[in-house]
Amino acid sequence: MSKIKYIGRTTDFKGKTLWEIVGNLKDFGVGRVIARSMFERYPEPCFMRILKVQALPNEDPRKVRVTVEKTFRGRTLPRPTEICSTSYKADYKLIPKSEEEQYCKITSAMQERILPSTIDFPPLLKEFIVEETGNQNPVLNIHFKERLNKYCRIAKEGETPNVKVTMGLGTPASPKLYENVKL
């Protein structure tokens, strides 16, 4: 038994590249479940079910194009996702068939984040706008880009946002850090 010696930098990845997994499976593992070790830090289950596998030319032997049905933090995305540019990462693991049912049981799901539609202006800019327009309470529309994989949206009319975005410091996530500070 040879002794294992690690060389180089530490890594957060743990597992194999996607090709190392699907290349060894019957029918390239279509129907099997894979998971990223990196996503195991979340309390909700994250896994991917393989729908289609396309091999690539041997220019980059670590890569493969795989279409998966992705479940991220307990929420299954509405559309299949294609993994290609991240397939080289040695962070994938195959879930054995016997454990699939247990692993894919969605017990809890990520809560949808609702952002406020408007926030305050920065104080000086607000002064300028009040002086220019005479409007005493100008409001700034929040910047938000719609994305399919974002589980986040802007609050509709009459809805209360569950994420607080303020122009100031806001409510600390860890009040412990501000114990002796006057806010």
Partner: peptide, 19 residues
Amino acid sequence: LELLRLHNNYRTQLRSVTS
């Protein structure tokens, strides 16, 4: 967690004002 919150907050503020 606190740094994440502050950074998220800051980026939203900055992009809102810029737009």
